[in-house]
């Protein structure tokens, strides 16, 4: 793996960024996270709000106010970069495990 200056993301952050690959308003992110994780991840509003707030501070996403009420979150270039990077990292991790563990579907049992 390339030498890494970014800290690994939490699972929750990773899925929020994935969900925001297309702009969404806040509440819809919750459903989208559930969808992209195939129902595996259900995120409470407190958890989601905390992540959205932090990722705004880290400039991974921005908030656009459209008509004053509905607020749409966009992923930034920086966020896209970080997501790709994390995806690569995770893929590397899976690849590194393959010689010993084989493909995902046959492991763990």
């Amino acid at each position: 793996m390339a030498n890494d200056q970014r800290a690994p993301m939490t699972e929750a952050m990773y899925y929020v960024l994935l969900a925001l690959y297309n702009p969404l308003h806040g509440y819809a992110v919750m459903d989208e996270v559930k969808k992209v994780s195939n129902g595996r991840i259900i995120m409470g509003p407190g958890t989601l709000y905390g992540i959205l707030k932090r990722m705004q501070q880290e400039n991974f996403i921005v908030l656009d106010e459209l008509d004053g009420r509905r607020k749409i979150y966009h992923i930034t270039e920086n966020g896209r970069e970080a997501l790709k990077h994390e995806h690569q990292r995770l893929t590397c991790m899976v690849d590194d495990g393959k010689p010993l563990l084989g493909n995902g579907d046959s492991n763990g049992k």
Binding site: T10, G44, G50
Partner: peptide
């Protein structure tokens, strides 16, 4: 069924 906090690490931050 949807808790406010579903991630303990995130809750620790709050």
């Amino acid at each position: 069924s949807l808790e406010i906090h579903t991630d303990p690490i995130e809750q620790a931050a709050t």
